[in-house]
Structures are given as C-alpha cells and as structure tokens.
C-alpha cells in the first residue's frame, strides 16, 4: 500500500496560484476556504521588507493532531496515508481546527470573506451548503469529498477521488505519465513550473523519495511532532519555509 506524499520545490514555485485555482474548481471551494492556498506574506521591516509566498496544502501528517483530537473519529487516516473527514460523523465541534498547526481546515457556516456571498447566490439543496453551477467530484460524504454539508469541517483530500483510483503499486503520479495523468491531484496537475511532485513516500525508488533524499526536503513546523507528508525543497535562492506562522511577529 502506498503512503502518498507531496514534495513542493520552493525554488520553482512562482506563486502563480494556478494550484489554488485548480483546487477551487476541482473541489468547489470558495474564497478564503482554499484547501490549497499560496500564502503571501512579508518578512522583515522597512526599509528592507521582502514579499514572500508559500504554497500550503494540508500536510496529511503521519501523526495528525486533528485526527487525535476528533471525539467522533470523523477525521481518520486511510491506509494509503491520507487524512480525511467523514462528514457523516463530524459534529462540527471544530476542535480539529484548533489542533491543526497549519490552519488548513474549514468550517462551512461562516460569514463570507468575499461579497457577494456565493453560497446565497447558489443556495444548497438538502443538507449541502451550496449548489455550484459546476460540480467537481462525485459526492462522497464518508471521505469528505464533494460539496460540504452544513455544520461540518472540511479539508484538502489530496484529491482522494482521483488518487484512490490510481493503479496499485504505482510509485509516482505525474503529468509525465500520460496513462495515469487522470489520477494526479489537481494542484500538481496544473502546476506550470512543475514545482509539485506527488508519489509514494514508502517507495525508495519513487521520485518524491529521491527528491526528499537528494535535495534534503524539510517539513513545516517539524517540532510539533505531526510529521507532515508534505515536504519542501529550498536551495535558498527562492522563497524559504516561513520562520513563523505568519501574522504579527514578536517585535
């Protein structure tokens, strides 16, 4: 069984947000609820501030604190290493949002970040929070895939509706492999500079394993013990893994 993971080469990422847009289209996300986001932030102060960016999907941790705190086991880890939410069991307590060190979980029922409220323009039917004119993946509440129902938390699924259909034993899911391109997560598939790689972390011959080993991949906030399955490569020439979580840094 594969253990899916992602490698993001920060030296190649141009911050173009194509990954975020593809994710939004694929998973019907709304502004501010981006499963995949490229975060822009400033480090340093005048007169030498530096604008930086940082692509941030869910880290699909080896030891996910979001899963451990979930009182109903709605958040779970699949055999192939993906952290998902069973929307049928989520009670909307939001403890996972508190416990995730990376801020990658989203509650449905909130004031919109951008007006007009798209959810009210396309109101949902039944339990679903909205009814977009274009629907991406098949609704699969047990794996947190599709349109988010009311009162639950959602998160990046590594496009589980795609990767779960990939042939067993495959080492990498890459655009270079035409036969299996359909199974590549949307953010990886659309990345123009090929800054993203997706594959089996347990396979020593996979491209992702080699990249992590050869280019010394690092993980975000490794000290929390969550052990992300998303690794970042940075030779130092371009954007680096942020020193903090963003927001106001201590003076």
């Amino acid at each position: 069984m594969a253990r899916w993971g992602m490698v993001i080469d920060l030296d190649k990422c141009t911050g173009c947000q194509a990954c975020s847009t593809a994710c939004q289209m694929e998973n019907n996300r709304l502004p501010g609820e981006n499963y995949q986001d490229v975060l822009y932030y400033t480090e340093g102060k005048q007169p030498t501030p530096v604008l930086k960016w940082f692509p941030r999907p869910c880290m699909h941790c080896e030891e996910p604190s979001c899963m451990h705190v979930c009182p109903t086991k709605a958040t779970f880890k699949t055999e192939d290493g993906v952290v998902l939410i069973d929307w049928n069991k989520c009670i909307g307590c939001k403890y996972c949002m508190i416990a995730c060190p990376y801020g990658v979980r989203f509650y449905t029922d909130e004031k919109p970040l951008v007006e007009p409220d798209i959810k009210s323009v396309f109101p949902g039917e039944g339990d679903l929070s909205w009814n977009p004119p274009y629907k991406g993946p098949q609704q699969d509440n047990a794996h947190g895939v599709g349109i988010q129902p009311h009162g639950v938390v959602s998160k990046c699924t590594f496009c589980y509706h795609k990767i779960s259909k990939a042939p067993k034993g495959i080492a990498d899911l890459s655009n270079d492999d035409a036969a299996n391109r359909e199974y590549v997560p949307a953010c990886v598939r659309t990345c123009a500079p090929t800054a993203r790689y997706f594959g089996d972390l347990d396979n020593p011959n996979s491209n992702v394993s080699r990249l992590i080993s050869d280019k010394r991949g690092v993980r975000l906030l490794d000290h929390t013990g969550n052990k992300p399955q998303v690794y970042y490569l940075s030779g130092g020439a371009g954007p680096a893994v942020p020193s903090g979580r963003g927001g106001a840094n201590k003076a």
């Binding site: 109903t72 709605a74 989520c90 009670i91 909307g92 307590c93 403890y95 509650y107 029922d109 009162g151």
Partner: peptide
C-alpha cells in the same frame, strides 16, 4: 455552538476516540 449537537449524542459514545481530551471531557 456545535454544528451537529444531536449527532454528538451517538457519535461520541460509539466512536470513543480515547486520544481526544474532548471525548473524556464529555
């Protein structure tokens, strides 16, 4: 404050996530 307070009544006891402080608190 909960998204699904009534679901909580069955989902917490039947799932019993012993690692969750919230489970024990309840």
């Amino acid at each position: 404050e909960l998204g699904h307070p009534f679901r909580m009544l069955w989902a917490i006891p039947t799932s019993f996530q012993y690692l969750s402080p919230l489970n024990w608190m309840g």
